[in-house]
């Protein structure tokens, strides 16, 4: 059993911080001794959430992105929060291939990737206030070992 542990990371919404954020979360998650596949799933999901905060949330100007991670037993919970423009229609935003930025070569698959690579995804958002997503994943590698 892994004792409960948590961390909080705050950084400026610069694209160079995308790799920083996913590497930090992955390093923290390593305490649970996940498989390489589980770790890359987490890195990808974090990259999607953080990129969204940067290019959509703070579309009109830089701001702070907050990433919190909690691990307990074999479960990891990650929240990614911005205080940016918010999402007016969450259901539409989560549809596969929906993007508000096709000109920037976005594919509209970010939420689908997060949903597929994590076990659970919830999105909370208010226009002009910001967006907070919460993702959880159970490390199967660990439950097998117990």
């Amino acid at each position: 059993m892994v004792e409960k542990n948590c961390m909080k990371l705050e950084f400026l919404s610069k694209s160079s911080n995308e790799s920083f954020a996913r590497v930090v979360v992955a390093a923290f998650a390593s305490q649970l001794d996940p498989t390489i596949e589980e770790l890359s799933d987490i890195k990808t999901a974090v990259s999607e959430g953080v990129t969204n905060a940067i290019i959509h949330g703070y579309e009109y100007g830089e701001g702070i992105v907050i990433v919190e991670t909690t691990i307990e037993n074999n479960i990891i919970e990650i929240t990614i929060e911005d205080h940016g423009k918010g999402i007016a229609d969450i259901n539409k935003a989560m549809e596969p291939f929906y993007t508000s930025k096709p000109d920037l070569e976005r594919s509209g698959m970010g939420f689908t990737v997060m949903e597929t690579f994590m076990d659970d995804l919830t999105v909370e958002s208010h226009v002009n206030k910001g967006t907070k997503i919460k993702m959880t994943k159970m490390f199967k590698s660990l439950s097998n070992r117990e």
């Binding site: 990129t51 920037l104 070569e105 976005r106």
Partner: peptide, 13 residues
Amino acid sequence: KFMDSSGIGLVMG
């Protein structure tokens, strides 16, 4: 070593 949905966009483009 790493690719996210930005890679999908690049390939589609």
